[in-house]
Simulated scan of single mutants.
Amino acid sequence: MSNKHTADRQIPSNLAVQRRSILKATGAALAAGVAVSAGSSQTQAQTSSDSWDKVFPKSAKVAHQKVRFKNRYGITLAGDLYTPSDLKGKTAALAVCGPFGAVKEQSSGLYAQTMAERGFITLAFDGSYTGESGGEPRNVASPDINSEDVSAAIDYLGLVPAVDRNRIGVIGICGWGGMALNAVAVDKRVKAVVASTMYDMTRVMSKGYNDSVTLEQRTSNLKALSNQRWVDAEKGAPVYGPPMNELKGGEPQFLVDYHDYYKTPRGFHPRSVNSNGSWTITNPLSFMNMPILSYIKEISPRPILFIHGEKAHSRYFAETAYAAASEPKELMIIKGATHVDLYDQTAIIPFDKMEAFFRQNLA
Rank of each mutant, 00 (worst) to 15 (best):
Thr346Cys: 04
Tyr156Pro: 07
Thr114Ile: 02
His339Tyr: 03
Val273Gln: 06
Ser220Val: 05
Met198Ser: 07
Ala185Ile: 06
Asp53Asn: 14
Arg167Lys: 15
Lys4Ala: 11
Ala28Asn: 10
Ala321Lys: 00
Tyr322Val: 00
Ala38Gln: 14
Ala38Phe: 13
Ala78Thr: 08
His308Asn: 11
Asp187Cys: 08
Tyr82Glu: 01
Asn221Tyr: 06
His259Ser: 09
Ala312Asp: 08
Asp8Glu: 14
Lys235Tyr: 11
Ala116Glu: 00
Pro137Gly: 08
Arg19Trp: 12
Ser226Gln: 13
Pro84Asp: 01
Leu342Lys: 00
Ser294Pro: 07
Glu246Arg: 15
Glu216Met: 12
Val67Ile: 14
Ala153Ser: 14
Gly208Leu: 02
Thr280Gln: 14
Tyr295Glu: 12
Lys58Gly: 10
Met205Asp: 00
Ala28Phe: 14
Ser300Asp: 07
Ser2Ala: 07
Pro303Arg: 01
Thr130Cys: 11
Pro303Met: 02
Gly158Arg: 13
Ala233Leu: 14
Ala16Ile: 05
Ala141Pro: 10
His5Asp: 10
Ala7Trp: 13
Thr122Ile: 08
Asp164Gln: 04
Thr76Glu: 15
Tyr209Asn: 12
Gly177Ala: 07
Thr114Gln: 04
Ala153Asp: 02
Thr47Cys: 10
Gln18Met: 04
Val193Ser: 02
Leu225Tyr: 04
Lys297Tyr: 12
Pro270Ser: 07
Gly250His: 05
Ala78Glu: 07
Val96His: 05
Lys58Ile: 08
Lys311Pro: 09
Ser314Pro: 06
Val256Leu: 14
Asp352Ala: 04
Ser21Arg: 06
Ser85Lys: 15
Val190Thr: 05
Ala237Ile: 08
Ile299Thr: 04
Tyr199Trp: 15
Asn146Val: 07
Thr282Asn: 12
Asp341Leu: 06
Gly39Met: 13
Thr122Val: 08
Pro12Phe: 10
Lys207Tyr: 02
Ala183Met: 10
Phe69His: 06
Phe306Tyr: 04
